[in-house]
Design a protein around this nucleic acid. Structure first.
Lengths: 187, 187, 187, 187
DNA sequence: GCATAAGCGAGACGGTACGTCAGGTCTTACG
DNA sequence: CGTAAGACCTGACGTACCGTCTCGCTTATGC
């Protein structure tokens, strides 16, 4: 028995955990990150404030836990045997994720918060779901799967969306073509 | 007469304005954006709270006014007659600005805040100093100075720094070469 | 020459003085003493704030100046040759003044303010218009015109109104009769 | 069960309540009513501002709660079998209460505030401790215990103290004698 | 008749209290 | 011992008024 005393007392309520994660997701879309409060999350979830603080330190941690799984799923596009088509469709998913998805909103928000909050920075660094998925797409198309290659894929759509431009106007096809050419040279 | 009543009452104190802008700059570096408060700025500046609210609505507005001028200066690199060298040195300045400069920190912070604050988004949109300077560098090297060309220049270093990687590791030269090639084709 | 340089410069504006006094009177009735502010008085009077501060230090001083003249007039009842009738009609005027008149409201307010503001206490002490008029009524009816005789006349209606009871219910006649009897004995 | 949910959550802190009431009492004497602030009371009591606002809306309510009990005690003089002596000693207690006692200062202050604050007026009307105690003294001496009889007892010393005269100079004995005579006639 | 001087309305200045809100901690009773 | 409830202290919020200080202007006197 490695966890002799682990089961002493009332077990954690899965119901409370889910309620908190959903409340955080909902409130992020409704009121935005700045107006998102631990108090508000607890009240929306119908949960005591202490229960929230017991399991998460900050609203960023809640958002992170709430969005990582969704993010992974939304970014996993089916592989296309033609590299150009594969990369293009992935870039499209990236733009959609960043601009439209609740999990994408959480990602942008967390990266933003990380700029002035070391704890969030560490959280993000521990699991950068965007870089990870991009590297796997590069790898499966025989391209270099380095961090800087990933940054060259993610960067343009990321800046595009972060600076508030319409996702539809982003030149996905052109970028895919150029990246494929450039990264093939590099490798 | 455009400003008939402009000189009624005590005129605005330039001294107070400067004190507020500098206080905001200093405090951003010292305590970060989240802990930056209107109250704190006013106290650091030795200024009444009302005086801050009289001229700026939010801490974002103060930071914006405080950083725009600095940003423009730091991003204006002397032109190199060789396009590759010119673009490379500009990319270097971009990385340095984003990663090291107080004005760059303010820029990252504001773009972050814009993700959940429409007022900040509008502010940024009214004067995106990064896109502007990039477009002018592209133009002077005979490259297409569109918004999406700019996004392809800014995006990679922007994501690199935003996700907390070391500025020194960013592949400035490679990116400059590839961009020059790709954008020449597009044009 | 007592006032050699007294007439140098622009003379005081009587118009501004009147506007301030009336504004104070009006605002006292409209918003009450607590919500009466120097700023509000100045704005209502259409006068600069400095002009108010130049001539009065506190809102109490303004009210005092605004009400003393009115008070004296309202409390000067025509003499009745029959002492009981004279005293009765004066008591009636007293009740009406305290309960209904704007100047009476100002008097109650100032006496209230005097309880915790020594400056107001001194102001009132310098000219207690209620005690003065009462003493003169006592004197003209051959009664002792001491301060404590005055207090015995003023006290009951004063407490009655101060504690918020309806003026009509105050037993003017009974009090006048008893006072006349008691004070005659004392003298 | 009238208070089914009364015991849910952390119970109110009696310690905080007492600290606030004492702080209000102390500060009233130290700085006066005008300079008495909710913020100051909270700080002096070592209590959060929200805790004060949670239980009391205004400084007047705090003073009222702080003084009523004291007032009742200070005004309950032991009965003297001789009516004149009983009334005289009660009048003495009244003067002392109004002029010297902290609770008396609170009473004067509240009656003052009631002149321009309907909420305070209602508060006072709900429990006029001065009128109540006076009526009971009148009753136990076989005199009419009406509101206007009470006003004739309280009025003179009340006006005396309110207008700032020395308590020692108030003619307690004369007033007691005259009142006894007059009210006996009325009854 | 022009300088000097003081009063004028306007409005910005550095402060401070307002009443509210969220933070994070604590203390209950219940399950 | 986890939970919901809710009171606790702390401290920032944005507003109002404080009393003071410039401004440009007006309106007197007096050299």
């Amino acid at each position: 028995m490695t966890e002799l005393n682990a089961r002493v007392g009332r077990p954690r309520s899965e119901q409370a955990r889910d309620a908190v994660l959903h409340a955080a997701d909902d409130l992020l879309l409704e009121v935005g990150y700045a107006a998102l409060t631990m108090k508000g999350i607890a009240e929306r979830a119908g949960v005591g404030r202490q229960t929230v603080y017991r399991w998460w330190s900050t609203k960023a941690e809640i958002l992170f836990e709430a969005s990582v799984a969704d993010a992974e799923e939304e970014l996993s596009v089916p592989r296309d045997p033609v590299p150009l088509a594969d990369l293009t469709s992935y870039l499209g998913a990236l733009v959609t994720f960043l601009a439209q998805s609740p999990a994408g909103a959480a990602y942008r928000t967390l990266l933003a918060a990380a700029q002035h909050d070391p704890a969030v920075k560490e959280l993000i660094a521990s699991r950068d779901v965007l870089t990870d998925s991009t590297r796997s797409v590069l790898a499966r198309n025989g391209l270099p799967a380095s961090d800087d290659a990933a940054a060259r894929v993610i960067g343009p759509p990321f800046f595009w969306i972060m600076s508030g431009r319409p996702p539809a106007d982003f030149p996905t096809a052109t970028l895919a073509r150029d990246l494929l050419h450039a990264l093939t040279m590099d490798g």
